[in-house]
Simulated assay, not measured.
Amino acid sequence: MEIRQLHYFLMLCKELHFTEAAYKLGISQPTLSQQIRVLEDELGQPLFDRLGKKTVKTEAGNLLEHYALQIVQQLENAKNAIEDLTILNTGHLRVAVLPSDLDYRLTALLIDFHKEFPNTKVQVIPSIDILNKVLENEVDIGVGLAIQPDSRLNRIPFYTESYSLFVTKDHELADKGIILPADLENLPLVMYPKGFSGRDLIETWCLSQEIAIDALLETGSATSLFQLVKAGIGATIQPSQLIESFQSLGIRAIPIKDSPTRNLEMFYRTDKYLSQSAKAFLNRMETFF
């Protein structure tokens, strides 16, 4: 059994279509079919059933896929570890983060990280599907809301934050020391659209407080929301720490009594090799927040 054959096999598992899998592998369909037959002959079991035009994995195919994924991952880990040892500060780091406010706040950290690892290519990918991106190996590290325990993942809690009401300094509520939940009802607000994690967290909190809020304008950009607040169109409810980035706009953050809170954590696959740069990024995240 060769690694090349396992790559062929895994691509077919993903596509479940010989023609499409062969195209993505850059080989002919007869070549792919022949290599799958070689694997089946070696194992003494069919790996796929051909049901007309449909291809499905057999029980043996499912078992081989499980172990083949581990083999390919471990080989990738070995290559990365050796590369990390011989060519320090190079490589490629992919990080998925919550869109809008969280990716916005990483700019200062990324500048410092680049100074330490100038040859490491970094991709920060805003996503609302961070967990699956990590599990599917599309990214190296996920940064987002706390998830349920999962044996496939290492999890590092790094921050718990409250929410505040953000208003202009001449707003009628600007002099308040604290905002009561009831004060938010009928207040003109600009917010993220429903479906964004931050908005959904606030909506759930509102239900627990037996209040309802409504948004005059909705946008998925933190910068846009704060520009709308500055223009006097409405207030917004956002993580309290964001005031550090937007004080220059003449905006004030007022704590909310019993405010919504969110727990943030970083996570990565337990079977994945983490480069020195990836470990440094995790450490910097903990220090930064």
Results as ranks from 00 to 15, higher is better:
267 F>S: 03
276 Q>Y: 12
197 S>R: 08
252 R>Y: 00
240 S>G: 05
264 L>P: 01
225 L>A: 07
269 R>D: 01
223 T>D: 10
197 S>K: 12
282 L>W: 03
190 V>S: 09
261 T>V: 14
257 K>T: 14
264 L>G: 05
246 F>N: 02
204 T>D: 01
200 D>I: 13
222 A>D: 12
261 T>H: 08
256 I>Q: 09
265 E>S: 14
272 K>T: 12
225 L>W: 03
201 L>P: 10
227 Q>W: 10
223 T>M: 01
237 I>K: 03
188 P>C: 03
208 S>V: 15
212 A>H: 05
216 L>E: 15
199 R>F: 02
191 M>G: 09
240 S>L: 10
216 L>W: 09
187 L>K: 02
196 F>A: 05
263 N>P: 01
228 L>V: 04
253 A>L: 15
256 I>N: 06
254 I>R: 04
263 N>K: 02
219 T>C: 03
208 S>Q: 13
208 S>N: 13
227 Q>I: 15
247 Q>D: 10
193 P>W: 01
221 S>V: 15
282 L>E: 05
240 S>H: 04
220 G>E: 07
214 D>K: 12
189 L>H: 00
243 I>D: 11
262 R>F: 15
254 I>F: 03
262 R>S: 01
256 I>S: 11
266 M>F: 01
226 F>W: 08
207 L>P: 00
199 R>Y: 05
266 M>V: 06
185 E>D: 08
266 M>D: 02
277 S>Q: 05
197 S>W: 01
212 A>Q: 10
213 I>R: 08
282 L>I: 14
189 L>D: 03
202 I>S: 01
279 K>C: 07
257 K>Y: 15
272 K>D: 03
202 I>W: 02
239 P>Y: 02
187 L>N: 01
260 P>S: 10
186 N>S: 11
271 D>K: 11
250 G>D: 06
204 T>S: 11
241 Q>F: 15
247 Q>N: 11
262 R>N: 15
260 P>K: 13
224 S>T: 06
195 G>L: 09
185 E>R: 12
207 L>S: 10
203 E>S: 11
190 V>P: 05
212 A>G: 07
237 I>M: 05
186 N>P: 13
269 R>G: 03
209 Q>K: 06
198 G>R: 10
232 G>D: 09
207 L>N: 09
190 V>T: 07
261 T>W: 04
199 R>S: 15
254 I>D: 02
250 G>A: 11
231 A>E: 14
241 Q>A: 08
